[in-house]
């Protein structure tokens, strides 16, 4: 499952810094994500992991450093930025499905308006994606009529509909009831097995162990450790990571 170092680099962050006022949320971040790699970012709250994830499609701006995606530097704004975002799928903690559109409408909107796909083809593709994430029978409902787990799976289908090069997951299961977490994780496991490049910010250590090629541990705005799941969970090198793991793995 391990992806060789120095393989095909898809997302590259170099010396990225960001402040929120006086808070230095990202401190000289260097991170390379290879094509087909699943990187799980973990760390305590406020460590900057969500900010890192959001910076990759520029929902957060950065103060300095560079981010390149598939060899191209992240555009600052305008058409180029919109085009880049279409290639980077994003799944949010709070789902953020378009509340005034049906499930089908959510999954076709980007295809029709950004990719200029013919509506009929877009609907076909949407239905097959909804099938894939297991909510095909909900296609004509509105988001508010769905459970959290169903909404998040629709959100994954919406992102996949754009045929993204990489998928970003910003704590996708943190807002879910416990019994719905697995249905979302299973969809993500399947995606990982299908070879999708993924950056996953999560507190689900089970997912990190089973699906990740690499675990990135962040604390206080820095990447403290970057290792395979076996190495990281079995033999963490830094005190900070040992401390973190001892707190969450005790129960």
């Amino acid at each position: 499952m391990a992806v060789p170092e120095g393989g095909d680099a898809l997302v590259v962050l170099e010396d990225v810094d960001k402040h929120f006022g006086t808070l230095h949320v990202l401190q000289s971040i260097d991170l390379t994500i290879h094509r087909g790699e699943v990187v799980v970012v973990i760390g305590p709250s406020g460590s900057g992991k969500s900010t890192l994830c959001r910076a990759i499609n520029r929902l957060e701006t950065i103060d300095s450093g560079t981010i390149t995606i598939d060899g191209k530097p992240l555009p600052a704004e305008g058409k180029e930025l919109a085009a880049l975002r279409a290639d980077v799928g994003m799944v949010f903690q709070s789902f953020n499905l378009f509340a005034h559109k049906t499930v089908l409408g959510n999954v076709t909107l980007g295809q029709v308006k950004v990719r200029r796909t013919d509506r009929k083809k877009a609907e076909e593709r949407a239905r097959s994606l909804l099938e894939r994430v297991g909510v095909a029978n909900q296609a004509d409902k509105y988001p508010a009529q769905l459970s959290g787990g169903q909404q998040q799976r629709v959100a994954i289908a919406r992102a996949l509909a754009m045929e993204p090069k990489v998928m970003l997951f910003d704590e996708p299961t943190s807002a879910l009831d416990p019994e719905m977490i697995n249905e979302v994780l299973e969809v993500m496991q399947q995606l990982a097995r299908d070879g999708m490049t993924m950056v996953v910010v999560t507190h689900e250590m089970g997912f990190a162990r089973s699906a990740a090629n690499r675990v990135v541990f962040m604390a206080d705005g820095r990447i403290v450790e970057s290792a395979t799941p076996d190495e990281f969970f079995g033999n963490p090198r830094s005190e900070r990571a040992k401390d973190f793991l001892s707190k969450i793995l005790k129960h």
Binding site: N57, L59, K79, A82, A86, V88, F98, K113, V114, A159
Partner: peptide, 19 residues
């Protein structure tokens, strides 16, 4: 979050507002 989701699928400012 609605605006962020719209931007994340590649809609531009006008489309985000309009759609």
């Amino acid at each position: 979050g609605q605006v962020e989701a719209a931007r994340a699928i590649g809609l531009n400012f006008t489309q985000t507002l309009r759609l």
